[in-house]
Design a protein around this nucleic acid. Structure first.
Lengths: 129, 129
DNA sequence: CGGTATCCGATAGGATACTG
DNA sequence: CAGTATCCTATCGGATACCG
């Protein structure tokens, strides 16, 4: 296997966009919030109730992050009392394939680790005999 | 849009495998290390030189994590002096499509943010006039 | 209702020194 | 060469209280 500078720099160049994607999804709450908004717009307290365990502070912060990244839109209805809703943007729909890909690999990976574990137990059994 | 418990729980059930995948790739150094090992097995110091800025401590820790997740294999050649090499496993190859997916979306997302920025500048220009 | 402010502990990761 | 040990800092996220 011959490694040229060209090959190496080509490979390194994928790191930045991959990191950008990971950063957008990173943290404990981004995904659960996105899932909660999948079936239409919701109010702050509704999201809070659906995303179990999240504090107001984190929900507020994460919604702001998602808005800055163009994944969520914040709507203010000028009624009385004022009603604030959040919804996913069109852009957020493009995440679908990424999330599917991550989900599929996650499942595959778990199976792989389980197999490894069975292998280990087999070996251990033989050794004990 | 009607939201049933069934729909919601189906959607929530993707969260765990997605999180598993993200956890495997998470941290500052996992991807760069994987890339460094893409062109064949390497020794500790070789990886250290290719992954710019990583400390011995982090390289050691991250290699152990990757090994535990079955992505990297550690080989000890019983020569004199002992030679330790690291290489990607077959299982790690299955990451390819995930990384490609993340890369593609990362690029798309950057473009999307750039467009948004141009929109903003246009609006600002009009407002100044 | 839709948040913000403050404080606090846990974890990620950097710097440096040392070892078989 | 291939790491480990120790110490330090910064960021993440939880708990609680408060506000218009």
């Amino acid at each position: 296997m011959i490694e040229t500078d060209h090959q190496l720099s080509t490979c390194m160049s994928i790191l930045k966009p991959v990191r950008d994607s990971l950063d957008v999804l990173n943290g404990k709450w981004k995904l659960p919030i996105i899932v909660a908004l999948t079936f239409g717009e919701k109010r702050f307290t509704e999201i809070s109730k659906e995303v179990h365990g999240i504090t107001d502070r984190m929900l507020s912060k994460e919604l702001r992050d998602l808005e800055l990244n163009g994944l969520v839109r914040r709507n203010i209805e000028e009624s009385y009392p004022v009603k604030v809703t959040y919804q996913l943007t069109e852009h957020s729909k493009s995440l679908r394939s990424v999330i599917d890909s991550l989900k599929d690999w996650g499942i595959l990976h778990k199976q792989r680790l389980a197999e490894e574990c069975r292998e280990y137990k087999k070996v251990k059994k033989v050794l004990i005999k």
